[in-house]
Amino acid sequence: MFVPVAQTREIASGGMKAVDRGDRKIVICNFNDTFYAVERQCSHQGASLDMGTLDGYILTCPLHYAQFDIRTGEALSGPVPPDPRHPTGDLCSYAVKVENDTILVEIK
């Protein structure tokens, strides 16, 4: 089911917005005016990724600099320094669509 989470004007290109829907913590990212949604908590130690940096399609965690591809949720690199005790997995990614300037995210 797609649920509205934000208006397109709320997130400039290169920007992010944190939203909560039920127990889901999500960050909406604007990459070249295409919107993507991924899980908001870093898969390494749970830091809020919306406090990190979005550079193109790459989202960097503010805590240990793990990086993720917002288009797929894929983990691109682990923390710095490497932390074998806490492996960094992929983020959950959500389908997104825009209708009448409203961003909708599919919550299953």
């Binding site: 790459i58 983990a75 691109l76 960094t88």
Partner: peptide
């Protein structure tokens, strides 16, 4: 983690 995806990310940043 996927080596090819990381290579693309490094290419993008570099």
């Amino acid at each position: 983690m996927n080596v090819q995806a990381r290579k693309e990310a490094l290419r993008y940043f570099f």
